[in-house]
C-alpha cells in the first residue's frame, strides 16, 4: 500500500457548538455508551478519552454545557444507580478528567449509603470509589473506616487508599483485615511505594517504623508485601550536621577592592564588619 496525503482530521466535537443543553446531554450519554462515533486514536480507545482530548477546542459556552451535561448524567445516576458498568466507568472517568470536584458530594452520598452500594456491581463500586480517590476528595475518616469494615474482600484495599489520605496510622491499622491474596498484596505494595514518594525522608522513616509494628498482625501475603516495602525504606534518617561555612571578611574586602580597581570606578572603602549596623549619616536638609 502506498502512503497517501493525509485527510483532514476529524471534525472533533465541533458539531456540539450551538446545540441546546438537552442535545449536548443526549449526545454525551450516547457517546459514553459508545453508541456514536468518536475520533479515537486507536479503535478500542475508551469513549471519554477523545472527549477529554477535544473539549478544549470548543467555545467556552459549549465546554460549560459539556461539563454541566456530565454533572447531570452523574446526578441522574446517583439518584437511580442502575446502569451499564462500561457506561458508568466512562462517565465517572470523564467527570474526573474534567475535574468536576463538586460531584464529590453526590458520589460520597451514594457511597456512604451501604444498602445502595452493596447492591451495585463490583465494577460500579470501584468506579465510584476510584473517582473519589482520583479527584483527591477530602472525605471523613469515618467514611473510609466504615468502608474498610463493609467492602467485600476484593475491594478492601480501596478503603486502605482512602485511609492513607488521612495519614498512615489509620491506614496501617486496617492491614490485618486485608485478605491473604497475592493480587491484594501486589497492589498494596504499589500503593505504599507511591505514597512514600509523596513524603519527605523523615516522614517515610516514621511510617516505616510504625509499619514494622503492624507486620506481625498481617496475613502472610500482606505481611510479605509490607516487609518488602519496609526493607526498601530506611527507618532511620541520618541526621546531617549543618554545613559549616568558613567566611573571611578580609578576603571578601580584598577581592572587592581589587575588582573596584579593575573596573576603574570609585575606590572600594573598607568598612568595619559591623558597618551595616552603623547608622548612616543622613544628608542635611537645605
Amino acid at each position: 500500500m502506498s502512503a497517501s496525503a493525509p485527510e483532514p482530521v476529524d471534525l472533533g466535537l465541533k458539531h456540539l457548538e450551538g446545540q441546546s443543553f438537552e442535545a449536548v446531554t443526549t449526545w454525551l450519554e450516547s457517546a459514553l455508551r459508545a453508541q456514536v462515533p468518536l475520533p479515537t486514536i486507536v479503535p478500542d480507545e475508551m469513549p471519554e478519552a477523545p472527549i477529554l482530548r477535544l473539549e478544549r477546542g470548543l467555545s467556552e459556552i459549549t465546554r460549560q454545557d459539556l461539563r454541566n451535561a456530565c454533572r447531570t448524567l452523574v446526578r441522574r445516576y446517583v439518584r437511580q444507580p442502575q446502569d451499564d458498568d462500561a457506561y458508568i466507568g466512562a462517565l465517572l472517568r470523564l467527570a474526573k478528567g474534567l475535574n468536576l470536584t463538586d460531584l464529590v458530594t453526590d458520589l460520597h452520598t451514594l457511597a456512604a449509603n451501604h444498602a445502595v452500594l452493596s447492591a451495585l456491581s463490583q465494577s460500579q463500586v470501584k468506579s465510584i470509589l476510584f473517582t473519589l480517590l482520583d479527584l483527591r476528595a477530602s472525605l471523613p475518616l469515618a467514611f473510609w473506616k466504615s468502608l474498610a469494615a463493609s467492602l467485600p474482600d476484593a475491594l478492601s484495599l480501596i478503603a486502605f487508599s482512602g485511609l492513607l489520605r488521612h495519614g498512615y496510622e489509620p491506614a496501617l491499622q486496617v492491614l490485618h483485615a486485608l485478605p491473604d491474596k497475592q493480587t491484594i498484596a501486589d497492589s498494596l505494595y504499589i500503593i505504599l511505594k507511591q505514597h512514600a514518594k509523596l513524603l519527605n525522608p523523615t516522614e517515610v522513616a516514621k511510617m516505616t517504623a510504625v509499619a514494622r509494628q503492624f507486620l506481625s498482625s498481617c496475613k502472610p501475603q500482606i505481611q510479605q508485601a509490607l516487609q518488602e516495602w519496609v526493607d526498601e525504606n530506611p527507618a532511620v534518617v541520618e541526621s546531617r550536621p549543618a554545613a559549616k561555612i568558613s567566611f573571611s571578611r578580609l578576603l571578601l574586602d580584598t577581592a572587592l577592592a581589587a575588582y573596584a580597581t579593575k573596573i576603574g570606578g570609585q575606590p572600594y572603602n573598607l568598612r568595619p564588619v559591623s558597618a551595616r549596623l552603623v547608622p548612616q549619616t543622613l544628608p542635611c536638609a537645605a
Binding site: V42, K96, D134, A154, S187
Partner: peptide, 28 residues
Amino acid sequence: RAVPIGNYAAIISDSPSVTLTPDVCEQM
C-alpha cells in the same frame, strides 16, 4: 499494540483483579 498511556492505565484499573485507581496505574 500501541496504546495511549492513560487509556492503558484505565484498562488496567478497570480489570476485575485490580484495585488500583487509573491515576495510580498510570504512575506505575
